[in-house]
Design a protein around this nucleic acid. Structure first.
Lengths: 201, 201
DNA sequence: ACCTGAACACCGTTCAAGT
DNA sequence: ACCTGAACACCGTTCAAGT
């Protein structure tokens, strides 16, 4: 009780918290389970009780990343007065997140040989769900509108994702990235597909 | 001369060749310098003569990846009859490459804390250069057109990059990705920015 | 110039043992 | 249920030595 007042049931939380910090400071390659255990003041075998292996910890970090990003996107979308405002704000929030947490972003969208584990996939699903809600009109949906909305959403997501990747990889600057997002939003809203999606009521 | 007929001066090439295979089969995390040396039939210290460390090998692989992608994009662009054809073909070639060599693509566009090494950066520059050439008209360029072209190119690159990332991360299917590219090309060509960039002669 | 092989420090993972 | 600590196999890197 006095010898270990700290790690009574919250080692898991500490590992995740420090894992995020380590990710930011050293990148994915710099993450070490043993170093994390050292920082937490436990033996190197201790993390095993909460994460079966290293990948399991990385998956948990990715899952948290998706939830955090979803939260931010939702918050930002709620503030926008007009549809255009919300659209643009979400794009910028997405890119900002990717710039501030590049290594985490990379972990979230890492190339996988087989499907990501269920919890991660569901967390990613919740993010894309907020994009859907951004686009949802009040009118009942017919099949054609559904299809257009789906394609519109995908293009928006691709543009944001690509901008984020190019910034993180240092192929373009953050300022250039924001320009891309603005241009893309303008273009999409003015396009035929955009007008089809946005006619409502 | 008889004891080592094979690795006389081409160990470097063998390591790069096998490195690409290993990348495709096991992903970046699966790449091991010692395993590569084993496959090449040399001691684990041998690679040191050609690559100072593991990162140096990865950089060389990324550089080769950029050059290979550039080559493909150039070839595909040369075949297109109309501007629209070329544009669309380049987009598809880019995404195809990313699907076929997801781990390599990830290596090429990995999040970096500091700038990538010069040779890699130059190889990436050559790729983006081919995008420029795709968009270049015959008329002399004024500043406004230059700016519009720059933004147009960046948006195109971002969309392709994002589509590629989302496919590799298994968030969307390859078929969905191709739809995104087609939609984006149509939208960009029909947009105000696109018309500004494309008025030529 | 290129490669060998021992040495070193560091990993992730496993598992019996403790509390 | 959670953590310890030894053990194992595997790394990347360094470096004196060989050819």
């Amino acid at each position: 009780m006095t010898t270990r007042p700290f790690h009574h049931g919250n080692l898991r939380a500490v590992l995740l918290e420090q894992g995020e910090v380590m990710l930011r400071e050293t990148g994915v390659d710099g993450i070490s389970l043993r170093e994390l255990a050292r920082q937490a003041g436990v033996s190197h075998g201790a993390p095993r009780s909460h994460f079966v292996d290293k990948q399991s910890l990385l998956d948990a970090l990715a899952e948290r990343g998706f939830d955090r990003l979803t939260h931010r996107v939702t918050a930002v979308a709620a503030q926008g007065a007009t549809f255009t405002d919300r659209f643009r704000a979400v794009g910028h929030a997405y890119v900002d997140f990717a710039v501030g947490d590049a290594a985490l972003m990379e972990l979230m969208f890492a190339a996988k040989i087989d499907d990501p584990p269920e919890p991660v996939q569901q967390a990613a699903g919740r993010l894309f769900q907020t994009f859907d809600e951004l686009l949802e009109g009040d009118a009942g949906v017919d099949a054609a509108a559904e299809e257009a909305r789906w394609r519109f959403k995908l293009m928006f997501a691709s543009t944001m994702q690509g901008t984020a990747t190019l910034i993180a990889a240092r192929r373009i600057t953050p300022a250039q990235g924001q320009t891309v997002v603005d241009d893309a939003v303008d273009m999409m809203l003015a396009s035929a597909l955009g007008r089809e999606v946005l006619q409502r009521g």
